[in-house]
Write a protein that binds this DNA or RNA. Sequence first.
DNA 1: CGTGCCAGGTGCCTT
DNA 2: AAGGCACTTGGCACG
Lengths: 245, 245
Amino acid sequence: MDAQILSERLSTDLGERKTTVLTCSCSIEYWGRSRSVIGCGDRIILFKPDSTVIVHSPRGFKPVNWMSSPTDTSADLEDGRTVVFSQRTVKPYEEMKITVDKVIEYTSLPGLRDEEKIDVTHTERDMRDYLEKHPREVHPDFRLKTVEHHITPGFIDLYGKIGDRYVVVELKAVKAGLPAVLQLKRYRDWLREKLRQPIHAILMAPGIAKNPHTLLKKEGMEFKKFNVHKLEIKKEKNTLEKWMN
Amino acid sequence: MDAQILSERLSTDLGERKTTVLTCSCSIEYWGRSRSVIGCGDRIILFKPDSTVIVHSPRGFKPVNWMSSPTDTSADLEDGRTVVFSQRTVKPYEEMKITVDKVIEYTSLPGLRDEEKIDVTHTERDMRDYLEKHPREVHPDFRLKTVEHHITPGFIDLYGKIGDRYVVVELKAVKAGLPAVLQLKRYRDWLREKLRQPIHAILMAPGIAKNPHTLLKKEGMEFKKFNVHKLEIKKEKNTLEKWMN
DNA sequence: CGTGCCAGGTGCCTT
DNA sequence: AAGGCACTTGGCACG
């Protein structure tokens, strides 16, 4: 495809907010939060109706370059080449310039519709909801008092008591690292200071890294394994029980 | 496009590791680290030669679903519909199932080549390299001893002295938050314990959030503004000076 | 709008 | 493989 034709078609199609896929050989420059340059190579450029621009190389998950909506994106002819210039209209201000060397494929589609929202489960939120209903899985004697209990340094996932001892529970849906342990320690220390009594701290996660675990133990806190995948089994059990009643 | 034709073309093209873009109305299920479901909507599906699969809805930056290489991805005909099944062959094990309702557009391209590596600058690494050469911008009297100085709790970005006082410098290319302050505090406290003497701690970043700044000051540590964008100016100045000599 | 924090985070590099 | 950490992190919810 001729550079002038491409420039005109892009201008028209972007103006009409069509979903456009341009496969081409191109080089790209980016200025903004950081700065990047990449030389000529074959890439797939996706222009979305909401003005998002995403550039994919033939390898890997992550786009090689991108511009997040809202952007002003336009195509021009410069020295016989099509140049796509995209500019973010709000903070953070960013710019991307794509210089097209050779068009491989061009497709533009109007009126794509997707009203659906994705439903993601097996997340930390689900873990919290589940343990709110099954506090015994935290500890046989755990009595839950508050979920998302707000204190000065942040939010405690689960707050309650075992016997007469207050308990702080921090939840992680993925393997816990240092930040999780530090966060729990901060809550524990703050409460201990506030209530002037020992506080029991429990970190629940499918796993914990080695150094964080060392620190956890040294600080007298507890790790309890909880895999979010078991939620599936529980749910099915629950459904089965319901069906049997 | 007929479902059977699509299944056959996809099987062929994926088998030949062609870069393929399928625009279609589809529903998607995902099982793996989490679980997700999304009903029927128009989406752009990108199949890369390295077996990466990325599904984009017409809105937003983030893919609605994806599978990271390496995957086994294949297309089949089920109840008169094309079903794409993608499975990760290594940990973490994951699966994605796309049920195609209606094909809107199909493009498959062989032999896309991109040998270029992106060059990203104005990053924390550049900040460190720059300050290594210009330690006076940390403090007029700062004498740098070690870059990426390894101690038990982690790596100190810049380690040196001001007068006879040891100095720990933590760098952030973006606005500093609580984790940055806690990290610096950990290094400072560890060194103070180890060397049994007061340690000066400096956090250099383009900005710092309010609460973290309060904690920083309370702990007797210092914040010094450093914007990575100034590197550009410095570099240009440097080039200019070189050119003038 | 800034702040905090989860995410199917991803990617890179070191042990 | 696991750990640690930056990232143009993105996204959301809350003050």
